[in-house]
Simulated scan of single mutants.
Amino acid sequence: MRLLLVEDDESLIDLLKNSLPKQNYVIDAVTDGEQGWAYGSTYTYDLIVLDLLLPKVDGISLCQRFRASGYHMPILLLTSCHASVDKIRGLDAGADDYITKPFDLEELAARMRALLRRVNSNSLPVLSWGSLQLDPRSCKVTYDTQLLSLTPKEYGLLELFLRHSHHVFSTDEIIDNLWSSKEFPAEATVRSHLRKLRRKLRIAGAPEDLIETVHGLGYRLKWQPDNADSKATTVIQEEITANKHSKHLKAIAAAWEKYREKSRNQLAILEQVPRVFSEGSLSFYHQEQGRLAAHSLAGNLGIFGFSEGSRLARELEGILQGDTDLGAEQIFHFQVLLTALRDELT
C-alpha cells in the first residue's frame, strides 16, 4: 500500500516512517501543502494522511483541491484542534476521517485500515489463492498452513498479486506500487525480489509457476482450475499481536531519542515567556512563539506516551492563545505548569 504523508512536524514524520513500513506501507513524506499537491497530483496513492495546519497551503484547502480535481482515494486528517467545528470543516472539505493529536499509533493504523477497506473490500480479509493465504492485519503469509518468512518487498509483491489476481503487472507498475517516488530501482532489482519470492514459495510446497511470467507483458498469479474464482475470505484474528506491539514500542523509542533535543528547545522557548514578562517586554512575537512550541509539545508528547506532559502543554497553549495581554496571575499559573512539565520530561 502506497501512502502520502503531508506533515510539517519532522519528529512525527520520523516516527511514522519508522513504524508504518513495518506494516508494509510505502511512504512518501512532504512537509508543506504545495509539495503535498505536487506529489498527490503526480503519483498514485492508496491513502493520503494530511495534517490540518500546514505551511503554504493548509490541510483544508489542500483537501478541497484534491476533491475538486476528482481525487477519490481516502484522506485521513491529522489535527491538534479539539473543537468540533475544525473537525466538521475537515470532513466537509472532503476528508474521510480524522484523528486528533496526540494519537496512539495502533489507533492510527486501525483507522487507515478501515479507510482502505471502504475503497477495497479486500483490504482486511485474509487473501487466498489456493493453499496460499496472506493476512494483512498480522502480515502473516502461509502456504498449506506453513508460515513463510518474507522481506517487506517480497510481502508487498505477493499482496499486490493477490489483491489484483487477474492483472498482469509490468515491471514499471510494480515499481510504482512498491517503491517510493524517491527510489529508482532497476528492473533487475524487481526480478531479483521475484526470484527470491518464488523460491520461498516453492520451498513451502507451492508450484514453481505460481507466479508466472507473461512474456512481453509482465507477471501475475497463475490461474488455478480448482480456484478460478478465488476470493478473499474473512478470518477473525487478534488485531494486534505481541510482536507488532513490540515493534511499535521500538519505533516510538527511536523517534523519541531524535525528538528529545527538540523538546528541550521548545521548553527553552516557553521559559522565555515569564522572563520577558518580568522585564516588561513580553511581545506578541514571544507569546506566539511560545504558543507554537506548546502546541507542538502537546501533540507529540502524547504520541510518545507522556499523556500528563501533553495535558500540561495543552494548558500552556491555552494561556498563550488568548487575545488579551497576560497578567501576573496568568504568568504565575504559567510558571507552575511549566515547572510541572519540565519535571515530567526529566
Rank of each mutant, 00 (worst) to 15 (best):
residue 105 L to F: 06
residue 262 K to P: 00
residue 112 M to F: 09
residue 5 L to C: 05
residue 98 Y to R: 10
residue 202 R to L: 08
residue 240 I to R: 15
residue 288 E to V: 02
residue 272 Q to G: 13
residue 277 F to M: 02
residue 227 N to P: 01
residue 146 Q to N: 12
residue 330 Q to L: 05
residue 10 E to M: 04
residue 13 I to P: 04
residue 175 I to A: 03
residue 235 V to T: 15
residue 91 L to C: 03
residue 18 N to S: 14
residue 86 D to Q: 12
residue 107 E to F: 02
residue 99 I to S: 09
residue 26 V to F: 04
residue 118 R to K: 13
residue 12 L to K: 09
residue 199 R to I: 01
residue 72 H to A: 07
residue 234 T to V: 08
residue 81 C to D: 12
residue 148 L to Q: 08
residue 308 E to H: 13
residue 287 Q to G: 08
residue 64 Q to I: 00
residue 189 T to Q: 13
residue 76 L to N: 13
residue 309 G to P: 09
residue 161 F to M: 14
residue 173 E to G: 03
residue 92 D to H: 09
residue 80 S to N: 12
residue 42 T to L: 03
residue 98 Y to N: 10
residue 326 L to K: 06
residue 166 H to Q: 11
residue 161 F to K: 04
residue 172 D to E: 15
residue 313 A to W: 04
residue 336 V to N: 11
residue 7 E to T: 04
residue 287 Q to M: 14
residue 117 R to Q: 15
residue 154 E to G: 00
residue 274 P to E: 01
residue 314 R to A: 14
residue 114 A to I: 01
residue 183 E to G: 03
residue 46 D to M: 04
residue 12 L to D: 07
residue 264 R to Y: 11
residue 71 Y to H: 08
residue 71 Y to G: 00
residue 225 P to A: 10
residue 13 I to K: 13
residue 230 S to H: 09
residue 78 L to S: 09
residue 302 G to H: 05
residue 193 H to G: 00
residue 299 G to K: 06
residue 338 L to G: 09
residue 107 E to S: 11
residue 78 L to C: 06
residue 118 R to E: 06
residue 199 R to C: 01
residue 193 H to F: 13
residue 76 L to R: 12
residue 1 M to E: 09
residue 21 P to A: 06
residue 35 Q to A: 10
residue 93 A to R: 02
residue 165 S to L: 01
residue 77 L to D: 07
residue 43 Y to L: 06
residue 332 F to S: 12
residue 124 L to D: 11
residue 295 H to M: 06
residue 68 A to L: 07
residue 173 E to T: 05
residue 216 G to P: 06
residue 299 G to R: 07
residue 87 K to L: 02
residue 242 A to R: 10
residue 288 E to R: 15
residue 14 D to R: 11
residue 189 T to S: 14
residue 289 Q to H: 10
